[in-house]
Design a protein around this nucleic acid. Structure first.
Lengths: 143, 143
DNA sequence: CCTTGAAGCTCTAGTTACTAGAGACTTTAT
DNA sequence: ATAAAGTCTCTAGTAACTAGAGCTTCAAGG
């Protein structure tokens, strides 16, 4: 069976990613160089689709491009040094867990706002205070 | 009792935010204009500290500046239209819940990598596939 | 008091990660 | 066959910072 292939416009729609952004990821090296058809237009396959979705979701979660590159390498097991891979994974895990904690705190507060704040005026909502709380934060600030 | 006050360098250290970035948030209107001392230097208080931490954490979680502004307004109850506030809060809540789901999936996979992948070679790690999975994604892509 | 080094000021320019547009070529649908 | 839609490259613009030059202000030691 023949693999499904996509034009850049289709890929753009499937991933909710603008066309120039796709081309830019290719240029930047985050997305493998696409093959071209007779008329020099890019053709993408399932792997590109998966990878691009991964990149977009990771970006939405606040990872920058170098971090995404590192996660990619981690996944494709390009890192032969397992100890190093382990360390990188652990570092990203810590980052992810911190993000989860902060988002959950924010979720709680948003829920409280929706339940209380819009029907009565007494509760001062604290999304801001909760997300400002450094106890949820692994970085070194003290006060 | 007199309120604690900070210079821009102290604030920068306490929030892990670069000095020009702090000034830029002020210019941009995200941070209230700081009062100045006799020599024209900015002085910050506890409120600035809380707010700046909130901004930085929200940025790390992938919110853009307009979204942060909106959350701020929501918190300070500047929106007198409660129905509108409710809708904005709900929209952010959905966004937050989606981010949490994606991060938790990523957490699971990173943990699996750390447990298995670094000690034996059999398990192909799937951080990438998991984060590419559109079932966790509320946006409209279909394939 | 004076100095000297750190901290702050403004303004300009550079970086990252896109995003939009111009002008030409290719594909597709009638 | 041709018109419309899609894609190409290249250049320029935007958002959110980040760094540096050149100058002023603060604060601690002599």
């Amino acid at each position: 069976m023949k693999e499904k292939s996509y034009g850049i416009g289709q890929l753009s729609k499937l991933t909710d990613c603008k066309i120039p952004t796709i081309r830019w990821y290719e240029e930047r090296g985050l997305l493998p160089v696409a093959s071209r058809n007779a008329g020099n237009q890019r053709r993408y396959n399932q792997q590109h689709l998966t990878l691009l979705r991964f990149i977009r979701h990771a970006r939405q979660l606040g990872f920058d491009l170098p971090a995404i590159e590192q996660l990619q390498k981690l996944c494709s097991c390009c890192l032969d040094d397992h100890l190093q891979a382990d360390q990188i994974a652990k570092q990203h895990l810590a980052d992810v867990q911190q993000k989860i904690a902060q988002l959950q705190a924010m979720e709680t507060e948003l829920n409280r706002m929706i339940d209380n704040c819009s029907y009565e005026d007494e509760h001062q909502c604290q999304v801001l205070e909760v997300l400002a709380n450094h106890k949820l934060c692994s970085s070194g600030h003290v006060v």
